[in-house]
Design a protein around this nucleic acid. Sequence first.
DNA 1: GCTCACATGTAATCCGTTACATGATTCT
DNA 2: AGAATCATGTAACGGATTACATGTGAGC
Lengths: 183, 183
Amino acid sequence: MELGKTSYVILGMLRKGPKSGYEIKAKADVSTRFFWAISYGQIYPELKRLEQAGLIEGQADAGSGRQRRVFSITPLGVQALRDWLTSPGELHSELRHEGVLRFFFAEALDHEERVELLHAIRAKHERLREELSAIRPAAESDEPLALLTLETGIAYQEFFVDLCDRLERRLAEIQTESTVRGS
Amino acid sequence: MELGKTSYVILGMLRKGPKSGYEIKAKADVSTRFFWAISYGQIYPELKRLEQAGLIEGQADAGSGRQRRVFSITPLGVQALRDWLTSPGELHSELRHEGVLRFFFAEALDHEERVELLHAIRAKHERLREELSAIRPAAESDEPLALLTLETGIAYQEFFVDLCDRLERRLAEIQTESTVRGS
DNA sequence: GCTCACATGTAATCCGTTACATGATTCT
DNA sequence: AGAATCATGTAACGGATTACATGTGAGC
């Protein structure tokens, strides 16, 4: 069976312990979401596929009062996860960033509007940074790599915040130049 | 008509001057690709749509020997571009980064394998940084914002290169701790 | 003459989101 | 009693990639 990256998100989450589809989503929303998002529309069908392939096993949850299926990873699943983690070849990575895209085309704007754009981008990343910082205390008891990844996420948001500040200064220089020369 | 971000990439490119679909792709491949990629499969159908909507105009190219259609942006198209550039609301941004994803799940690996993973991620971003640096000289004569955006791209790749170095050091600390304690 | 870059397009497919539908349990 | 959260799923849709098909012009 062909496994997509999403399958590995699920396998990886289950390797940390048995979980329901709902729990997988909840955990992903405070961790992998920031560099690999997944949705219910993928999770439930994929759980079915992975079970059929023998990589995970589901069982009706007796313990909790709720009616839910909890999935555990099988040795076969652990092997599939490990194989992916160590497989050579292209590490897929892509970014879709409307803010930078707009900035690239901002020659069509005037100075004021460009600055506003940078402020909007900055605000967005600051919000994300705070969101991640809020998660941090809960992650401190976690596995060390999960915490390192979270810190990476925070640093990533900070990169963009600092970037906006830098770009605003550069923009001011450009503006002064053209004003002095009189355009 | 509904315009997606891809439409604005095309409008933005045409605002810098008339171009064929092929040229739009070529320009995008050395600029917007790094934060908003587009493919031929989107470009040609979209050119048709934009022309029907009156946002661009195509004309058979007489000048060059080749048979191609060159598109120009119309005043309506410029307005649509400006409207998008200044529109408030969510700035879409998403990242899909297999390297960080793997690192998050690297608890399933041993120390050696984790370091190898970081090296692979680092190598990838270093390659991208060099790719962008190679483009730079050609962009120096360009519009200042295009150059600033390119520099942003270079800084972005550098962020990941530095990140890998930092993570490798952190990994070494973790490894030493657990070795000393004897696990 | 051959190869490479220029040039345009479409169809199949994949991946993922969104919206919807449904219902149980826990908390206030 | 009512709201919020837990919980599972599917169908429609949208966006984008890939592979394929086809042909021309320029330079070696």
